[in-house]
């Protein structure tokens, strides 16, 4: 077993265990942290596949930003674990059906001969000065420029929609205009009054 294979098994073990803990951990915060761990290890596995841009982007976007906000929300929820466990038996049958269907679909896809290891031999190792990031950038902005632009427009619409849907004007905020605060002059705030000294 060469070094790369050993690293692969090491990372995969962590990944599988962490993913299992995501769904078995009792505490939702622990589950979210295991999800962070599994994202991070998945990044490591992708790095082994020489997809360094995707690996780093996964860590940067999902671990560095998405999961932080996710944790932010999960930590603030006051979750009663006993109530979550209610109705386990009632939901078991539909849950099992969904799980069985998903498992069958995964077998159908992964078991097909197109995806077997023999059908796709490992690509040759690229030259030393080959930059995965540069090649990806070139492809996105030349060959796939229209799908890429389309995806970005959809994302932009989603961002604006999310802001528009949650935006509300509150009347009770004590919002201050910083420009006005800076532009204030002494005459606006202080009035100097000349008071003659009082004598008894």
């Amino acid at each position: 077993m060469d070094f790369q294979t050993a690293v692969f098994y090491f990372l995969s073990t962590i990944l599988v265990v962490a993913s299992l803990r995501v769904i078995t951990a009792r505490n939702p915060v622990h589950a979210a942290l295991y999800l962070v761990l599994s994202f991070f290890t998945a990044g490591g596995v992708w790095m082994l596949l020489r997809a360094e841009f995707l690996a780093i982007a996964l860590v940067l976007v999902y671990v560095g930003a998405v999961m932080v906000l996710f944790l932010f929300v999960v930590m603030m929820l006051d979750i009663n674990i006993e109530r979550l466990r209610e109705g386990f038996w009632a939901n078991l049958v539909p849950g099992l059906i969904v799980a069985g269907l998903m498992l069958a679909e995964m077998f159908a896809v992964l078991g097909a001969k197109y995806f077997s290891a023999g059908a796709a031999p490992a690509p040759e190792a690229p030259a030393m000065d080959y930059s995965n990031t540069k090649e990806l950038g070139r492809l996105i902005y030349t060959e796939y420029v229209y799908p890429f632009e389309l995806a970005s427009v959809i994302l932009l619409v989603a961002i604006i929609a999310a802001i528009a849907l949650t935006m509300r004007k509150r009347k009770d905020t004590k919002f201050q205009e910083p420009a006005k605060q800076i532009a204030v002059r002494r005459e606006d705030r202080v009035r100097l009054v000349s008071m003659p000294a009082e004598k008894e």
Binding site: L33, F53, L60, G64, V68, T133
Partner: peptide, 23 residues
Amino acid sequence: NAGLLYIMAITSMGVYGVIIAGW
């Protein structure tokens, strides 16, 4: 050759120490 991306990804992990400590 992806050094800058690596820096951005790694420094963005630093926040977990603070969040986990707080929780």
